[in-house]
Simulated scan of single mutants.
Amino acid sequence: MAGDYEFVAGTLDTGDGGHVDNAVYPKYVATVRERFLRETVPRFEAYERPVVRLEVDYHAELFAGETFYGEVEVLDVGTTSFTTEITLSTEDETITTAKTVQVLVDPDADEPTPVPDDWRAALT
């Protein structure tokens, strides 16, 4: 399953060299992932989804004003968690790839909870 989202890199996201600062990419990754989940899974707000693992690989620079795209692929759906891979790219090259693992947490019990069948069906 994949979602494609378009963004423009902001000037406030850049460092002294004019390129997007490496600390900003996790924010971009989270934005893409959360937009994808809002559009894909039912009852999005019913669960907390803390990220328990984030792995980011940087491949190329991105500069303020450049258009880039985010794509999401679900790699795995486990018992209480799911793994996604997010790719950020321009039309010409891959900028960043990231993998995240999120755990579903029941907000009332404050405990991990099994991925519901309707979420599992939507994510696979």
Rank of each mutant, 00 (worst) to 15 (best):
A9R: 14
G65A: 15
E45G: 05
R53C: 01
Y69I: 03
Y58V: 06
D92Q: 13
V41Y: 13
G78I: 08
V29Q: 01
V56N: 01
K27I: 03
R49E: 06
T40G: 12
R43C: 06
Y25T: 02
Y47F: 15
V51K: 04
A46E: 05
D92E: 15
A23R: 04
F68I: 00
P50Y: 06
V77K: 08
T14S: 12
T79W: 15
A46N: 02
E39K: 09
G10N: 06
T80W: 03
R38Y: 06
H19W: 14
T31Y: 01
G18H: 10
G10R: 10
R49S: 09
G17L: 15
D13Q: 11
G17Y: 15
A30W: 00
A30I: 00
D13W: 00
R53H: 07
F63E: 11
G10S: 08
R38P: 01
G65M: 13
G18P: 14
R38A: 03
I86N: 07
V51R: 02
D21R: 11
I86K: 00
T67W: 09
G15M: 10
R33E: 10
V41G: 13
R43I: 05
S89F: 12
D76N: 13
G70S: 04
E66F: 02
V8G: 03
R33D: 10
V20T: 04
E91T: 11
G15A: 12
T90K: 02
E91P: 11
F36A: 04
F36N: 06
E61R: 11
Y25W: 05
G70K: 02
E55T: 12
T11L: 08
E93Q: 15
T67K: 12
V51N: 02
T79F: 14
T87M: 11
V56A: 00
D92W: 08
T87A: 11
F68R: 01
E55P: 02
H59N: 05
T84W: 05
G10Y: 00
E39Y: 07
L88G: 00
T80N: 10
G10W: 01
T84K: 03
V52C: 03
V29K: 00
V56R: 00
L54M: 03
T84I: 09
E61M: 09
Y47Q: 09
I86S: 06
S81A: 15
G65Y: 13
V29H: 01
E48K: 04
H19F: 15
E71M: 09
G78E: 13
R43L: 07
T80Y: 05
L12F: 05
V74H: 04
G15Q: 06
E39R: 13
E66V: 04
E93I: 11
V32E: 06
